[in-house]
C-alpha cells in the first residue's frame, strides 16, 4: 500500500526566514502521529504542506506517492477528498446548517444521495451532534464546532486526518472525547496526525494507540524523547 505522505528533505521558507529545513519522514496508512512543539515552531506549516496548501521551497512532498508540486489544482482538490483536515479555527459556511456543513465534502463530490444522508445521520450521532443538526455554526459551542469539523473531515472516509490543535479551545473532558473519536477513526485503518501542544493529551492517547510523537523545534522535525 502506498505511503500516505512522504517528506523528502523538505524545507519551507517564508518572508526570507526558514521555517522548516531538511525534514524527511513517512506517514504510513493506519499510523497515528502527534506533532508537538512550541507555538510558532511550524506545526501548522507542516500540516499545510501535508495537504498541499503550501508547497515546499526545497525538497519534495509526496502525497499517495505523487509529488505534490505536480498535482495541479484539480489534483490537489482530489487529494483533499482523501486527506481530511480539522482546523483549529473550524471554518464553516455560516449560512448552512451543521448537517449541511458536515455533508459539504459529499456535496462538492456530487455524492449527496439518500445513502449519504443516512451516513450523515450516523456520523452526527457518532460525534454527538444529532440534536444540533439544524443549528447554524455560530450557534455551536467550541467543543461542538470541533466535533462538527471532525465529522466533516471524516465523512468521505479519507485515508488520513490532519487535526491542527483540535482540543485547543475545549475543556479536558471534551478533549478526551475528541481524542476518542480520532482513535476510533485510526482503528479503522486510517492515518491520523494531530498537531498539539497539549502533552497530557499525548500521554493519554499513547495508552490507547501506538502513536509516534514528532517534535518540531529549531526548524527540524525529530522523534520525541522516551518520556513521550
Amino acid at each position: 500500500m502506498d505511503l500516505v505522505i512522504t517528506f523528502d528533505n523538505v524545507a519551507y521558507s517564508y518572508g526570507g526566514g526558514e521555517l522548516l529545513t531538511g525534514v524527511s519522514l513517512d506517514i504510513a496508512p493506519g499510523s497515528f502521529h502527534f506533532l508537538t512543539g512550541p507555538s510558532g515552531a511550524g506545526k501548522t506549516t507542516f500540516l499545510r504542506l501535508c495537504y498541499a496548501a503550501l508547497q515546499p521551497t526545497a525538497g519534495e512532498v509526496r502525497l499517495f506517492d505523487r509529488p505534490a508540486q505536480e498535482l495541479g489544482r484539480d489534483g490537489i482538490a482530489a487529494i483533499r477528498q482523501r486527506i481530511g483536515v480539522v482546523h483549529q479555527d473550524c471554518r464553516f459556511l455560516d449560512h448552512l446548517s451543521v448537517a449541511d456543513n458536515v455533508a459539504l465534502p459529499l456535496t462538492v463530490a456530487g455524492r449527496d444521495g439518500p445513502a449519504a444522508r443516512r451516513d450523515l445521520d450516523d456520523l452526527l450521532g457518532w460525534v454527538g451532534l444529532s440534536k444540533r443538526a439544524d443549528a447554524r455554526p455560530p450557534e455551536l459551542s467550541g467543543g461542538e464546532r470541533q466535533r462538527a469539523a471532525l465529522a466533516r473531515a471524516v465523512i468521505v472516509s479519507p485515508d488520513a486526518i490532519l487535526a491542527d490543535e483540535p482540543t485547543g479551545n475545549v475543556d479536558w473532558e471534551m478533549s478526551q472525547r475528541l481524542l476518542q473519536l480520532l482513535v476510533e477513526f485510526n482503528r479503522m485503518g486510517r492515518a491520523v496526525i494531530v498537531a498539539t501542544h497539549d502533552l497530557g493529551l499525548v500521554r493519554v492517547a499513547k495508552k490507547q494507540v501506538p502513536a509516534r510523537v514528532l517534535r518540531i523545534a529549531n526548524r527540524q522535525v525529530t522523534a520525541a524523547g522516551a518520556d513521550l
Partner: peptide
C-alpha cells in the same frame, strides 16, 4: 473569500 477557502478545504475544484 472564506467560503472559497472552506470549499477548497473540503475538496471542491476551481470549476465547481
Amino acid at each position: 473569500a472564506q467560503v472559497i477557502s472552506v470549499l477548497r478545504l473540503v475538496g471542491a475544484t476551481d470549476d465547481y
